[in-house]
Structures are given as C-alpha cells and as structure tokens.
C-alpha cells in the first residue's frame, strides 16, 4: 500500500518533469553545427546574458543574417545565463579557441576581465572583434593588444535623450539618475552621457543611485528619491526596465504628472508607456544590427579587406512621436 503510494507520487513527478522537458524542447531550438564546410569561416558569437531582451534581439539579428548568408560563414552563438558571470564567459572563449574557430565576436561581460582570454584567442591566430561593451583601453595597452570595437556610443545615446529632456525643463530644475550596475562600462557611459547634457543645460543632479537594471529595485529606489526630493522634475534611467519601475513608483506616489521619465533601449513595454505619456523618450541602439556589424567586420578582416579599427553603430532618440 505504502509502496504503491510512493510509486504513484513518483509517476506524477516524472510526468511533470517530462512535460517540462518537452515544453522546453519545443521552444528552445539550438542550432550548433560544428562541422563546417571546408573553406567556410566559422564565426563564434560570444554574448552576455541571454536572459536580457537586448541581447536576445542581438542574437536573433545575427542568426537571421547568417541564414541569409549560409554560403559565407557558419555561426556558433553562445551566451551566459547571467550577465555578471565572468567566469562562465571566460570558459566559453577558451572552448571556442579549442574548437579552432576563425573569428570570435565578443560582447564582454566585463570590460577588463575578458581582455586576457581574448589575447589568448588572438595568439592562437583567431580574429577577435569586440562588440557592445568596449574593452578597457588601459587594460588593452597593458596586455599589448589592440582589439577593434564595433558598437554604439552609449554616452552619445544618453546625451541625446537628456538633451531632449532638457528642452522640457528650465535651468535649475532638479533631476535624478537611476544607474545600471555601477561597474558595467555601458552603465558608466550612460550615466556620463546624462550628466554631460544635464550639466550643459544647467540642471541640478540632486541624486544618482543604482537599481542594477531591475524593474522592482528601481521602483524602490525612485520611491525613496521622490520622498527625499519633493521638487524633483525628472528621472533619467539607464535602461527601460528601470524606467518601468520608476513609473510604477511615481504613480503610487501620485507624482507621475510632475516628474518626467527618460529610458534607454527602446523595448516594447517602454513604447506602450510612451504612448500613454508616462515615459518621455528612450534610445534605440539597434541591437539587431550590432552583432551583425561585428560579424561582417570580422569576415572583412579575415579576407584582408579591412584593417582593425573601431567602428561606431547607429544610436537614435525615440520619442512618442516616432511610434505610430
């Protein structure tokens, strides 16, 4: 009797597990063709968090491009589950070296920590192109390597958004910044871009705190900020997820009408908020194009058609008027 009950529970558990596996099997199709046709270069795309909509768009863009250029190269796209997991990304690059790929296009999880392993790849004769998050210039100099960077200028993007905001404010108005992860290069650049434009327009930055790119954390931080600064006029968020949290906090405090919110990344949820007027503007870095540009550039270098140099990709301001 007792046996029967246990095996009954086991059967249920196995059933549930099997269903989960099936579900994930249907949706999670991984194309990894290691056996390349001879002569066709193999390009490894090593990404940051696959959990992030931005990198997902980036990866999809690369996969689409590869599908349209099947005869030109093979793509191995890899990412790490957590964008702070430097160790995992390090291992990934070493795997790619061992697989003797021809080029590695990498969005480094850390702008310093990943320089060493990238140098190992270059020493093994692999072309390395840096995308999205730029390697630290000093660290590159210390290692004695130069790796071309293809990607957006985050600082410029942030400046565009903040300049647009400045038009809606008066000099002397108080503003606050919600930062991303303080050690991330793009978070630092976005913060600087906000500061550039706000200082130039003579606004007063009264507060700047990190919400680690997260919606619910941004809600708590903004909620505290608006209590502290009763006359705050605008909040500049280093990404859209945090802008969503900022809007939730302002709404709960009844301050949504007198505090403007700026985002970054142009995710679809932010577009909805812009239509409602809750978010003023955001910035589009055309994520789908960043990896593609990196790959094309790597192929050009492989063919000897390009000399390794930095290349900037497009950054555009998006306002409610841009969304139909």
């Amino acid at each position: 009797m007792d046996r029967l009950r246990v095996s009954g529970i086991r059967a249920v558990a196995v059933g549930a597990l099997a269903m989960g596996v099936m579900l994930s099997g249907c949706a999670g199709k991984k194309e990894q063709k290691d056996a390349a046709a001879p002569g066709k270069p193999r390009v490894a795309l090593v990404m940051k968090s696959l959990a992030n909509e931005f990198f997902k768009t980036m990866e999809d863009g690369a996969r689409n491009h590869q599908r349209q250029h099947l005869d030109q190269y093979d793509l191995i796209a890899q990412g790490i589950p957590d964008e702070r997991d430097i160790n995992r990304q390090h291992d990934l690059v070493q795997q790619m070296i061992a697989q003797k790929v021809d080029a590695i296009v990498i969005a480094p999880a850390d702008s310093k920590a990943m320089v060493g392993v990238s140098k190992e790849a270059m020493d093994a004769g692999i072309v390395v192109v840096n995308i999205d998050n730029k390697f630290d210039a000093d660290t590159l100099a210390q290692e004695g390597v130069s790796i071309p960077f293809v990607g957006p200028d985050n600082r410029k993007g942030a400046r565009l958004a903040a300049e647009y905001l400045a038009q809606k404010l008066r000099p002397g108005d108080k503003v606050a910044i919600i930062e991303g992860i303080p050690t991330a290069f793009n978070a630092i650049m976005r913060k600087r871009g906000f500061e550039d434009a706000m200082t130039a327009a003579r606004m007063v930055i009264v507060d700047s705190q990190s919400a680690h790119w997260e919606t619910s954390e941004a809600e708590k931080v903004v909620s505290g900020m608006v209590s502290r600064h009763a006359d705050l006029k605008a909040i500049l968020c280093a990404n859209d997820s945090m802008a969503l949290g900022a809007v939730a906090a302002l709404r709960s405090a009844g301050r949504l009408d007198d505090v403007l919110v700026v985002g970054f990344d142009n995710i679809s949820a932010a577009q909805e908020y812009m239509k409602e007027g809750a978010i003023l503007c955001t910035v589009d870095q055309h994520a789908d194009q960043i990896a593609v540009e990196g790959i094309i550039y790597a192929l050009d270098i492989l063919e000897g058609a390009a000399t390794p140099q930095d290349k900037e990709t497009r950054v555009d301001l998006v306002t409610a008027g841009d969304i139909e």
């Binding site: 994930s24 999670g28 997820s241 909805e272």
Partner: peptide
Amino acid sequence: QAARGLTHIVTGQQTQYFR
C-alpha cells in the same frame, strides 16, 4: 534553474506589458 528557463521560453525573453 528550470522555472527561470521556462520563464524565458514563455515570454520569448520580452518584457510583457499589461497594465
């Protein structure tokens, strides 16, 4: 791990807006 993976699959890794 599993539930986080399922979350990404279910959402297509996109933030869902439903206010």
